[in-house]
Structures are given as structure tokens and as C-alpha cells.
Design a protein around this nucleic acid. Structure first.
Lengths: 161, 161
DNA sequence: GAATTAATACTCGGATATACACTGTCCGAGTTCATCGGG
DNA sequence: CCCGATGAACTCGGACAGTGTATATCCGAGTATTAATTC
């Protein structure tokens, strides 16, 4: 089991978009160049974010993407689920119904014990992702990144909005 | 992102093997028939469990698999990692190094903030799986399953060990 | 009748094809901006 | 000089191939059982 690389790209793009001046748009072309990833493929991740209402895009010159909500209102979970889907990590195929000892007249009731454990773990994973917002990430980066690098990125972004 | 169906099969097989009388072996053929899954493919999951030291197999007639450790000493995480691998769910490709603003002379130090959050969530998921053992699962099943079904399964298993 | 030996049948283990999904790419529809012409 | 219409360029959005992993399968190596044979 491995998260697709789109998730990583989407998170990094969200972090950059959180630093875009209000009312401006940053094109996917710039985001792809910034992260060194293929532009055409990155678009798909951004489209997924747009469908989920996390970012919004505008066409034409000076178009691009921007966050659709304040960074504090967007969690890691929102971004991950936008790309990976909201389905649980564990899919119960109900193989217990194939049990030759069980009587077909009395099908098992309620989710099976194994699936419950797996789903609880899945929920713990999601809860941890839901607890961190893009605003939190921005604060962490502001504290860790060298000042000159931060300014350089801000200028680079400003040149392309 | 989706766990492979081998994980579900491995967990169900572990649950059944936990109910096998001590010193006896249950063949993969019986486990496959019990769960209604292809026998040849299920073998691969059991081989993974054997490599991880969770179960052990014996050849010849009356051969098969049995747990290599007490059910209380085997957690869900052990089974899941045996099949899925111990690698983290999130793979950081270090795309921040492609940042055109960063100076190649000063590469970023330490894991990036995004990867840290993802890894923490991954750890929360694993912690939840590590907290449940096969003995716990057995206790839950003993409390939930109808007595007649439990006896029927025990007899079915006993006939094939 | 008991022990030894050989054959047998059954098991696991790894090597081998196929299907699906992720990865990567391309082109068209739509919109905004800039330019040009007219009032 | 101001307004409107027109053209162009740039953007996003969805449709189209390539590759890698998970799925499914088969056959060979090895062992405990079983039966036959010999003492």
C-alpha cells in the first residue's frame, strides 16, 4: 500500500498557494516548474483539488489556481481525500459469508470484527491528518525555513501571479 | 490507496489458525476452501506470514500451517506488515530540492514538514493496529458468534488437521 | 509378528502469465486581456 | 480622449497511450505417511 505521488504534489502545491497574495492566481505551469514535476500530470492533481472545493481555477491570461478557503479551514485530510478518494483503506469483501459452516438462512449481522479493527485504525490515521491545517503547516515552515529562502520564494511567486 | 485483499485473507486465516488445536497443522487448501478464495493465490499470503515468523508450515500428509507464536503475541500490525511491507504509507520524493529559489549549496536539512505530518499519521495508524492482538480478536469473536456456529467451525477444522 | 525399506501421496515454496491502475502526455473548449477602430 | 468590438494568447478541463504493480496460476522440491517386504 502506497499513497500516490499526486498526494505529495498536492500538499506541496497547497502550501505554496497558501502563500499567494489574496485575489491573485498562480498557474499550474508555475507550480510544476517550482516543484520540478511534469506540468500536464500535475494538472490532474489540481483538478482533483478543484473538484473537492479546496482550490478554484480561473482561465485566460493571469489565470491559474488559488485556495478556495482560508488556510486554517483546509486540513491535510481534505487534500489527501481529494486526491485519494474518501474510501476506507481497508475494503471488507465479506469473505466470512463463504464459510461452509454458516447457515445461509442466518447471515452474519453487523460488520465483522476484523473490519472493525481495520476501520478504527483508518479513522485514527484520518483524525491525525484532520488535526493539521495548512495554516499550521505555514507556521511550521515560517519557523524552520531560512528568511532569505522565504523571501526568495515570495518574490518568485509574486513574479508569476 | 487501498490495502490489497491479501491483507484481509491473512487476517482471517490467522483468526482461524488461532483456533487450531495445539500441535496440529491446517493446510492452505482447507483455509482457501473455508474462505472461498483461490488456493494458489492464498498460498502467497501464507508464505509472507511464514517469512515474517508469524506462522510456520510443515510438508507432507497432515502438513499445513499453524501459528508460530501465542495469539496474544501476534498483533494486527504484525500480520499487515508481513503482507504489505514495513515501508511507510507516504514516500517523500524530496521535491523541495527542485525548488528553483533554493541554493544548491545549502540543501534543506532534516525531513520536510509535510512528510513529518504524513509520517505521524502513519504511526498513529500502526499504533492502533499494534494495540490489537489475535487473542483480543478471538475474545471478540467468542462473544459475538453464535455458539452453534463456533462449534461447527471447530468441528470443521478438527476434521482437517 | 516386528522392523526395515521403498513407494506414494500430499504438502509447501518459488517461478511464471495476465489484468488493472497509476503514471505520463496530448489536444480541444473557454475565458480574459490587449489591441485596434470608431465615435 | 473614451468606448466598443475584435482578435489573440493563455488558461483549465477532459480524452488518450505507456508502464509498473497487484492478481491469479502453475509446476517442481521435499517430507511424513503408508504399504509391502524381509527377518
Amino acid at each position: 500500500m502506497q499513497l500516490r505521488n499526486q498526494v505529495e504534489w498536492a500538499l506541496h502545491c497547497s502550501a505554496v498557494l497558501a502563500g499567494v497574495p489574496p485575489g491573485r492566481f498562480l498557474p499550474a505551469r508555475a507550480l510544476a516548474e517550482f516543484h520540478g514535476v511534469p506540468q500536464a500530470y500535475l494538472s490532474k492533481a489540481l483538478q482533483a483539488l478543484a473538484r473537492a472545493g479546496i482550490v478554484e481555477g480561473t482561465l485566460g491570461p493571469a489565470g491559474g489556481y488559488r485556495l478556495a478557503k482560508p488556510p486554517a479551514a483546509i486540513s491535510f485530510l481534505d487534500v489527501v481525500e481529494a486526491v485519494e478518494g474518501r474510501a476506507s483503506t481497508f475494503a471488507c469483501a465479506e469473505i466470512r459469508r463463504n464459510n461452509p459452516c454458516a447457515s445461509p438462512a442466518h447471515p452474519p449481522t453487523g460488520p465483522c470484527a476484523i473490519a472493525r479493527v481495520m476501520w478504527e485504525a483508518d479513522e485514527a490515521w484520518r483524525a491525525r491528518l484532520a488535526a493539521v491545517s495548512l495554516a499550521d503547516l505555514g507556521a511550521t515552515l515560517a519557523a524552520e525555513l531560512p528568511a532569505e529562502l522565504r523571501d526568495g520564494i515570495a518574490a518568485w511567486v509574486a513574479d508569476r501571479t
